[in-house]
Nucleic acid binder design. Structure first.
Lengths: 342, 342
DNA sequence: CGTTGTTGGACGTTTTTTGTCCCGTAATAC
DNA sequence: GTATTACGGGACAAAAAACGTCCAACAACG
């Protein structure tokens, strides 16, 4: 394997470029389903004509099929993309980075997709796809899966499809919270995921910013307290990672609290908790659901990408709760830089 | 491994071509030492211009260094060629053929270099190089190595260099015979090999076409009879393979004998014996030295290439004395065809 | 000191790639 | 229904790359 990489790099770097290009096209078409030439070109930022040449080639090889509605990937193409994925990663050098991060934080698995979600919608989609795959991989029958909210989680949920592994699972939101956009709330994500995979789900309609009294009152409700119990016993937690300030604002935290959070050095947010640079919890959303002490005993899978989130991801990794991370090249490079993993 | 290559070929069909071309250039330059552009071009039969582009590329990659005296390979280039040899073989599909032949005849090792010695001098040189490597590989200290004559053996001898493994060996000619060109006689080959490697040698100046009386007389000579004893106890026999008729003519066999040999269906010649299509011995040169019954107990290494020799090589393999074969793509394909190894 | 073989520059020619427009058509929205 | 949109693919000129060919400058060698 390593020999092949060496071969590519030293004897045919030019061919390697076209290899990457063609692979990217196939991958993108596979993600998108069926797409037109012009759209595809902008999404991969290639010129229309050069894309066209490549597509002609791929069509010739029976890897793409092209109808008047647009082009889509063939079975052979799918197979190829799947089989070639590890090699391509190695080729781009992502495998190395994966190993580094994995070892640095003693994690179970780290996946790095190529690109940067900050600048490329494409990468975001790949992140989603990778997240969906990982979810399938680790989920066993009858598992309870607690999911958090956020745009990345939404992306993952849209990439899920019916699968036998997930069929018997139960999706629940990790914590309460109703302030964010509906589509980004944990509740919506959980239900979408469940619906798309054919699994079951239960929702938790509880606001954040709860006072003590309100909390007590809510927990009186057997439905709610029961569900909270289920959540806290979930076997797996699936979450995004956000920048603290951005998240706080999105959750419409009061001005005063916001300053307070910032003062404490909060950098990152994950499953309702705010972390500083060293990974210490400096603040938490006051709502019901998963508690920090529950996280340790669960399989914790984080999905987040974009170089701008690199610092935040690093902070969460340092907290030491993460078992699996799915990120992108942009963020991964930032993590490597932050932690001096050279 | 093979699968990965197959996958890559789907996305870059001319991968193999380019790779072969560049690799061939490096290899040839390595063999030749330092060579000019035009020479190299004819030797690889490429056009001068396209070679030039490739050379420019290889120079860029620091695999070739080019001075006003010509170009030569860099250390990095040497390393690359060496490291990648097995991978390249796999790529071209030679490994498969090697395995097939090896298994079909129950041999120790089979090496196939790419090309066809009939049409490419280059391939002949590679054959020589491969032969030299194998000789080094199998030779142990203090071994007696019986070598036969022929142009292929001469090529091998010219590719040898001083080596610790061979330093303590003793090279001897396998059999007598003085009729051929001096440079192709076993005596010359043995001495060249010994000189180039820093080993010892002893020569056997005995004509072929010996009558019974002459034979008896010769064996009276203690020098000769002693050496014959040494030869017959050699641990290794290193020989070429020739077409029977060609060899017989070269040895200036009388017209009558020639017809007789041909009538018996002689197809191949090796270490003084003539074999028919099934590998039966149908004739032998009447001289002193190694006898057929000695061959079985020795490590027998044959070197021969060129598609025209395919049949002859097959015949010798069928005789069942061979332990190691070094040949080229042209001959190997012919062997595969002859034996229906598909 | 000439001869020979070397690289590298130059340049016209050919081939390939690329940019651009437009057309007919199938799907989609309205 | 019809209007609109988005699709692939044909066509063609422009640009670029590859190629064949020749020659000049230069170093090594006899």
């Amino acid at each position: 394997m390593e020999k092949i990489i060496q071969l590519h790099k030293q004897l045919i770097p030019d061919l390697t470029e076209t290899l990457k290009k063609r692979y990217a096209i196939l991958e993108q078409v596979m993600i998108t389903g069926t797409i037109g030439r012009r759209n595809l070109a902008t999404s991969l930022n290639m010129t229309e004509r050069s894309l066209r040449s490549e597509v002609d080639f791929l069509k010739e090889q029976d890897l793409l099929s092209v109808t008047s509605a647009g082009m889509s990937i063939t079975e052979a193409g799918k197979l190829l993309v799947h089989d070639l994925e590890p090699t391509m990663k190695e080729l781009i050098g992502l495998t190395k980075i994966e190993r580094k991060i994995k070892q640095a934080f003693g994690m179970k698995e780290v996946i790095v997709v190529s690109g940067d979600s900050d600048t490329s919608m494409n990468t975001m989609q790949q992140l989603g796809r990778a997240g969906a795959n990982i979810l399938k991989k680790y989920a066993a029958n009858l598992d309870v899966i607690a999911v958090a909210g956020g745009s990345t989680m939404a992306e993952v949920s849209s990439r899920l499809s019916v699968s036998t592994q997930l069929k018997g699972c139960l999706f629940v939101p990790a914590r309460g919270g109703l302030v964010e956009d509906v589509e980004l709330q944990a509740n919506s994500i959980a239900s979408t995921m469940a619906k798309r995979t054919g699994a079951a789900y239960r929702l938790l309609h509880v606001p954040d910013h709860l006072g003590e009294e309100a909390y007590q009152t809510l927990m009186q409700d057997p439905n709610i307290s029961d569900l909270v119990q289920v959540i806290r016993n979930a076997r797996m937690i699936f979450h995004g990672i956000g920048e603290a300030i951005t998240m706080a604002k999105r959750r419409k935290v009061h001005e005063g609290d916001l300053n307070q959070i910032a003062e404490k050095g909060a950098l990152a947010e994950a499953f309702g908790y705010y972390f500083d640079k060293e990974g210490n919890v400096v603040h938490a959303v006051t709502t019901v659901g998963l508690k920090l002490e529950d996280v340790n005993s669960k399989l914790t899978i984080g999905v987040a990408g974009g170089s701008s989130k690199g610092e935040a991801i690093t902070a969460v990794l340092r907290a030491g709760y993460s078992d699996v991370l799915i990120t992108d090249e942009g963020a991964a490079m930032e993590i490597v830089k932050q932690c001096n993993l050279h």
